[in-house]
Design a protein around this nucleic acid. Structure first.
Lengths: 140, 140
DNA sequence: TTTACTGCAAACCATTTGCAAGCAT
DNA sequence: ATGCTTGCAAATGGTTTGCAGTAAA
């Protein structure tokens, strides 16, 4: 784990500092979208070497997003959530308890290709976001 | 136009004030997602009777969203965009010039039904958002 | 050693809230 | 007349920035 994150950072031209390693570690461990605040709390709780200032977390998230290591996720919360930018997928979000389930679907990508081919104003689509909102079984 | 918006407001239990009429008018005229700031500027420019305070716009947008007259749209900007909550559709957004194109697609709804039927954690999906991001033909 | 990185304080900016005055019904 | 609406000012809260000290390479 330590090696993976360290290598990932250096490959992208970053210094492998304790703060960055701790932040990346959370993404590799949790598999759930995280915002600056949740990361800050998790590090304070679990990390041995101490705290990481929330400002540092914002700067790290922003940098890692630009490098393509993380991507933003829109969960209709009032803060920005991020997740590892691996294997494209989508989310189902419970509007009551905020539980998030991920899913993949090849059909969606195909349908979107057709949509793009029909558009006269756009030929050059780089990404898309798809989120479903509702109540999870527990909250229903 | 004046009559439509007036009736819509009263049907939903709101007083038909000049501010609200002006705000709704913009949505009926433009067909494009709007945020508080853009509405405020448009009213200042075009309306005869004067300005509307931005706070009033925020309150109106929030109320109209709760009533289901408007819905939020995620355009990856740093402010909230709204549009009339009619005939469900999706957006293609130019990440350079912010141009927005709308589209509808029945296949997407069908694919999503299948996705939901596969989920064990969610049975109760109320809405979804789908946005494509890329460069429009002009910006490519 | 060198330059990137971090923490602190303060700035920023979209949005929300309290309250008194104003207006639609 | 009544109570919903508005505007102003101030508060809020997430995020960003300036700067000086610190640490990774």
């Amino acid at each position: 784990m330590e090696e993976i994150t360290k290598t990932l950072l250096r490959e992208n031209g970053y210094k492998a500092t304790p703060a960055r390693l701790a932040i990346l570690k959370i993404f590799f461990q949790s598999q759930k979208p995280q915002d600056a605040s949740s990361i800050c709390k998790k590090i304070t709780k679990t990390s041995k070497q101490g705290k990481v200032n929330e400002v540092t977390i914002y700067r790290t998230l922003s940098a890692l997003e630009k490098s393509g290591i993380l991507r933003k996720v829109n969960l209709r919360k009032n803060s920005e959530y991020f997740e590892l930018n691996k294997d494209h997928h989508h989310h189902i979000v419970c509007t009551k308890c905020s539980m998030v389930e991920s899913f993949k679907d090849k059909n969606i990508e195909e349908v979107l290709k057709k949509v793009i081919s029909k558009s006269s104003k756009f030929k050059n689509i780089k990404e898309h976001s798809l989120e479903l909102f509702g109540l999870c079984v527990k909250c229903s």
